[in-house]
Design a binder for these strands. Structure first.
Lengths: 144, 144
DNA sequence: GCTTGACTTAGAGTCGACTTTAAGTTCTAT
DNA sequence: ATAGAACTTAAAGTCGACTCTAAGTCAAGC
């Protein structure tokens, strides 16, 4: 079976070899084997796992919860539903992140419109001249 | 004009008073005035700014770049287009974040389907039985 | 008048996720 | 055979964004 060196994998994943060794030390690379010379050899499965790890990290799961997930996986099929729950929960987190991102996008779009108007008028006092913007400001910038 | 104490604003914004003072110390609250007793009094405009600050933070702009934006704003209308550019750039960042989030959502959805199938079969060896999943795995988990 | 919460400066501590250093070993190409 | 890259380990250092402590003063509401 084809395997990859730590350097090759680092390049593939866009991280440094240091980071991969750090993950290994932290128990985040559960299956990576070492060859007779003590060098890590990564399989396709290891790389697949790194892609999941990346997904979990990118969606805000802390490394120690990722480690917990690994522990579950090691315990075999009796933890299948617990692992499923973890991904369901993560999906909810991602939905929330999307909502927040959409709201922030609206605010940023508003600010761009604001600056378009301000540049057109050569000054910042925009709300008196543009009632539409003033209304939008009210809608977007309020505290719950 | 109605003003708010640091404690009221902290509650509104869902942060601690420590954080607000930290922001002030770091030059991130440019207009907050203090009353005769030296207590901070936040205006509606200050709260509006905190909402923008929050938006910029949440979309990944570091505090020192936020400080830079404040510097620009202080320099008046000659920096209007530079400030507009900053928001245009931030909009691009947010678009990227959305793309990444969508891709990660697909991976998470895949994992949920994977676990649904594994639970149904009582074991993890799912790809032999479900060609559709095997195909989707190939599509979702590949390194560029 | 007492409790609660505000203020001040200055500095130390925390947390997560790396990142770098040091000192040594092994692989690959010429 | 030797240079230089890539590998090994353990441990210390960095960074951003808070978070808290200390030690003391001041003010508002009941």
């Amino acid at each position: 079976m084809k395997t990859y060196s730590i350097g090759e994998v680092a390049k593939m994943m866009g991280v440094t070899t240091h980071t991969l060794r750090f993950y290994d030390k932290e128990g985040l690379l559960p299956n990576v084997r070492k060859n007779s010379a003590g060098l890590r050899r990564f399989t396709e499965d290891d790389i697949n796992w790194l892609l999941i790890l990346d997904c979990l990290k990118a969606t805000g799961l802390p490394l120690k919860e990722i480690r917990h997930y690994i522990e579950l996986a090691k315990q075999g099929s009796k933890t299948l539903s617990e692992r499923r729950e973890m991904f369901i929960h993560q999906k909810e987190r991602v939905k929330q992140q999307m909502e927040i991102l959409n709201k922030n996008m609206e605010k940023i779009d508003f600010k761009i419109k604001y600056y378009d108007e301000a540049i057109k008028n050569g000054e910042e006092n925009v709300y008196l001249k543009n009632k539409h913007l003033a209304e939008e400001k009210k809608r977007l910038f309020k505290v719950d």
